[in-house]
Simulated assay, not measured.
Amino acid sequence: MATKNMLHPRNQHRDGYDFVRLVADTPELEAFTISNPAGQTTIDFQDVGAVRMLNRALLKTHYGIDFWDIPANYLCPPIPGRVDYIHYLADLLACGNDQEIPRGPNIKALDIGTGASLVYPLTGQSEYGWHFTGTDIDPAAIKSAQQICQYNKLDITLRQQNIRENIFRGVIEPHDAFHVTLCNPPFHASVEKATKGTQRKWSNLGKGQSKKLNFGGQNAELWCPGGEIKFIARMVEQSTEFADQCLWFSSLVSKKDNLNPLHRILRKAKVADYKVVEMAQGQKTSRFIAWTYIKKSQRSLFLKGANKHNG
């Protein structure tokens, strides 16, 4: 396939998908492969089953995950874009570590809304050896994530969030210290808007109207009252309570128009620093926002101190 040269330089998927290698490792994928008009091997990305099998193959070939599955109708995330977030977070941590990416299980990452797929802990642990804690409000998602961990004998901590309005409260414990948090927030304000957004996406791809949500997805994964901006605003508000327990808080921001109000919210929260990191996958541009309450002169100390804190 064509080179995806917009992906992060360390992203294993910059050169597209090597279907010969993927099918060799996961023979079940072959039944889902098709040829595009240029004669290249691909899959039908509107086929949820095909996308799920591709993810299973990618996780096995590139990240050493022997078993991966999710319940029906749960979000099936595109692996290359998700891994990009991890790589750019690694670069962010390197800024406070003499430009060296910190690796190994002493580096602690907190994944808010880890989902049934557990995609960020699986890829982040494989790439950098970090220890992940994943949280979710959906018991079925936590159960799926637990099964993935058990089958693959992975050391990933999973915590159930029991109060919908809470993000960090109830899951960050007094003894915790995290180097980074990450989140793919629900970006629609209602289920109706989630459905319209998906139909618009399929229309743009020339697929016409489709009642299927893109790659599946449960309500908690796709929408929340007030949408993305309200969710991230609540995240910033609650982050102040854990200012000395985390080096960098972060969240994906799907809508560029949300950046200006988020800048105002972060300034009001009196953060020490914040950054917007642009990412691109093919023609799609995405971004995440990261903020910290730790002064620049103290960040390398936090990296060392957090290791002791978690030891």
Results as ranks from 00 to 15, higher is better:
121 P>Y: 00
119 V>P: 07
135 T>E: 07
147 Q>D: 09
125 Q>H: 14
160 Q>M: 12
130 W>P: 12
94 A>N: 06
158 L>S: 07
156 I>D: 04
163 I>N: 14
114 T>I: 04
122 L>R: 07
94 A>P: 13
115 G>L: 07
85 Y>W: 03
120 Y>E: 06
133 T>E: 05
95 C>A: 15
127 E>M: 13
97 N>S: 08
86 I>W: 02
111 D>L: 04
166 N>L: 09
99 Q>T: 11
140 A>F: 07
119 V>M: 12
167 I>S: 12
83 V>Q: 08
144 S>C: 09
123 T>I: 11
156 I>K: 07
91 D>Y: 02
142 I>K: 09
157 T>P: 04
115 G>Q: 10
93 L>M: 13
83 V>S: 06
128 Y>K: 07
113 G>T: 08
120 Y>W: 03
100 E>Q: 15
126 S>A: 15
149 C>I: 02
100 E>W: 02
159 R>W: 03
157 T>F: 03
86 I>L: 13
138 D>S: 00
89 L>E: 05
158 L>I: 07
119 V>S: 13
93 L>S: 02
117 S>C: 10
138 D>F: 09
147 Q>K: 12
81 G>M: 07
141 A>R: 02
128 Y>L: 10
129 G>A: 11
135 T>Q: 04
105 P>C: 01
111 D>E: 13
162 N>F: 04
115 G>Y: 07
107 I>K: 06
88 Y>H: 15
138 D>L: 08
135 T>K: 04
147 Q>S: 12
164 R>A: 15
161 Q>L: 11
152 N>M: 10
164 R>T: 10
112 I>Q: 11
167 I>T: 15
103 R>G: 13
98 D>Q: 15
129 G>C: 10
95 C>W: 14
149 C>R: 10
138 D>P: 11
104 G>R: 05
111 D>I: 03
90 A>T: 01
162 N>L: 10
128 Y>M: 10
158 L>Q: 09
121 P>N: 02
94 A>V: 05
95 C>F: 08
115 G>M: 06
116 A>W: 01
109 A>F: 13
156 I>H: 03
159 R>S: 03
108 K>I: 05
93 L>E: 03
120 Y>S: 00
117 S>W: 00
136 D>N: 00
121 P>Q: 01
120 Y>N: 04
151 Y>R: 13
156 I>S: 01
109 A>E: 01
151 Y>D: 08
155 D>M: 03
106 N>P: 06
138 D>C: 11
153 K>W: 06
140 A>E: 15
88 Y>K: 15
85 Y>R: 01
135 T>C: 11
131 H>C: 14
123 T>W: 01
143 K>P: 06
81 G>P: 08
105 P>G: 09
132 F>H: 12
105 P>Y: 00
131 H>F: 15
102 P>S: 00
119 V>A: 14
149 C>E: 03
108 K>C: 09
153 K>Y: 12
138 D>E: 14
110 L>W: 11
106 N>K: 14
116 A>T: 00
141 A>D: 04
86 I>Q: 08
165 E>L: 05
104 G>K: 00
88 Y>S: 14
85 Y>D: 04
167 I>C: 13
123 T>K: 02
148 I>L: 14
128 Y>G: 06
